[in-house]
């Protein structure tokens, strides 16, 4: 017998009588004050939220906070005046010296500050992680209350890789002292459009 057959046979023999899945459709979050909640939560966990009326505001912010000799990359054509438009790479190693990556997110989650981003928005899967700093743009109207609404929204959409990102990379492994900037981005700036 192969290990596969062995395992499946043992599982079949030992699993208990089938029990049904619970109904989870009643789990719903509160829509009230959802933008403020999102901003509060993300700020608390070390992110920064900037409300903007359009891409010009974002471009101005980038120009103000980063210098021309830094490597700034964006996957958003609307920001190509402020950062270099992403061009396909063979491997993520080519992105190792990126100082700022600006990408688009699908939507945010108010209860935890997370933003859902799939790989077609990233340029390369490694970009939001390997860049020293990351900025994500999404519409203010695209905030859902909790993870339940988040997965309803994701539904059965197709992706090769998707991730919820909630703030900068961090660790508290040394004596539970919180340090921002573990292996991923040192900071996360969220631009809320609209």
């Amino acid at each position: 017998m192969t290990d596969r057959e062995k395992i499946l046979a043992a599982v079949a023999q030992n699993q208990p009588e089938s029990s049904p899945l619970p109904n989870i459709s009643f789990f719903k979050g509160d829509e009230a004050g959802i933008v403020e909640k999102y901003i509060n939560v993300l700020t608390t966990i070390g992110g920064q939220v900037i409300q903007v009326s359009g891409y010009d505001d974002i471009a101005a912010w980038i120009t103000e906070h980063y210098s021309a000799d830094q490597r700034l990359i964006t996957a958003l054509p609307d920001l190509k005046t402020a950062a270099k438009l992403f061009e396909p790479v063979t491997t993520g190693h080519e992105l190792a010296d990126v100082d700022l990556a600006v990408i688009r997110g699908h939507f945010g989650v108010a209860e935890n500050g997370a933003i859902w981003i799939t790989e077609e928005l990233m340029g390369h899967r490694s970009l939001p992680f390997i860049a020293q700093h990351v900025a994500v743009v999404f519409n203010k109207s695209d905030i859902v209350p909790t993870m339940h609404e988040a997965y309803l929204r994701i539904g059965e959409t197709e992706y090769g890789f998707g991730t919820f990102i909630s703030g900068p990379s961090k660790t508290a492994d040394i004596e539970q002292s919180l340090v921002l900037g573990a292996h991923g981005a040192r900071s996360m700036t969220v631009f809320l459009l609209g």
Binding site: V109, A114, R125, F161
Partner: peptide
């Protein structure tokens, strides 16, 4: 409220 990264791996690059 959530980890910084909750990554969903569905297909290889």
């Amino acid at each position: 409220p959530i980890t910084t990264y909750s990554s969903h791996f569905k297909k290889p690059r």
